[in-house]
């Protein structure tokens, strides 16, 4: 257990120091949201209607782009081999790494959502609802994306290949995240139903992600 906590603290410290780049994700998120009005026009009515979708797409892309560094740096300097050889099960180590990555890169996205909501003419309740869906949904994005990151690092191919593999897998999260968020604003259905399914997806990915990532690391590192 102490080994896992140490791993999480190490990851957080690496992510937040100079050169860690966790906060670039938030910056990217901001840039995507600011770009939207230029693409669809500064119509506040329309922006309000598209708000949940824009925020979710921004968060999806931001968390996908930061996933590269989940295993890459550790693989390059050899510490990934040490983690794989240690007595801690690799599944748990992967889960710890993903948790730390989410704390460093996912939580800032959630915290930035209310501010960005202002730009999209969303009221406080709607912003809170979107932030809640992102709080529940971004772990699922991180843990699903971890599979792609693990595959990419063992194959020494990053970037686009990982995105191509992970994006189809994240469609359910996007569907229920946006549905729950729009349900809170206008939606034909209650907020609860899609939100609970989103929670379920998140929990499922917490199980599937570490196992698949650990399996691919184990298959790839030998």
């Amino acid at each position: 257990m102490t080994a896992l906590i140490a791993l999480i603290r190490r990851e957080l410290r690496i992510a937040l120091r100079v050169g860690g780049g966790a906060l670039i994700g938030v910056l990217f998120f901001l840039a995507v949201v600011v770009l939207m009005p230029f693409a669809i026009g500064p119509d506040l009515q329309l922006l309000q209607r598209l708000g949940p979708a824009v925020l979710w797409l921004g968060a999806l892309l931001a968390s996908l782009l930061t996933l590269d560094r989940l295993f890459m740096a550790d693989h390059d300097d050899g510490s990934l081999d040490l983690i794989a050889m240690s007595r801690t099960p690799l599944e748990l180590a992967c889960a710890a790494k993903a948790l730390a990555h989410w704390l460093a890169a996912g939580v800032p996205l959630v915290l930035a959502t209310p501010v960005l909501g202002l730009l999209l003419n969303l009221d406080a309740a709607a912003s809170a609802a979107i932030a809640a869906t992102l709080l529940v949904g971004t772990p699922a994005l991180t843990f699903t994306g971890m599979i792609g990151a693990a595959l990419a690092v063992t194959l020494h191919r990053g970037g686009l290949l990982m995105a191509v593999l992970v994006l189809p897998l994240s469609i359910p999260i996007l569907i229920f995240g946006v549905a729950a968020a729009s349900a809170a604003i206008t939606g034909p259905v209650a907020f609860g139903t899609p939100f609970q399914i989103l929670c379920g997806l998140s929990l499922a990915s917490l199980v599937i992600g570490p196992f698949a990532a650990a399996a691919s690391l184990r298959q790839g590192l030998d």
């Binding site: 599979i147 063992t154 897998l169 469609i171 359910p172 569907i175 229920f176 599937i208 298959q219 790839g220």
Partner: peptide, 22 residues
């Protein structure tokens, strides 16, 4: 690598199908 992605896909495809239907 492909085997792992195939199995992850096999688990996810029913979920995707359900989500898209919904």
């Amino acid at each position: 690598a492909c085997a792992i992605f195939t199995l992850v896909g096999a688990i996810n495809l029913p979920i995707i199908k359900f989500s898209v239907d919904w």
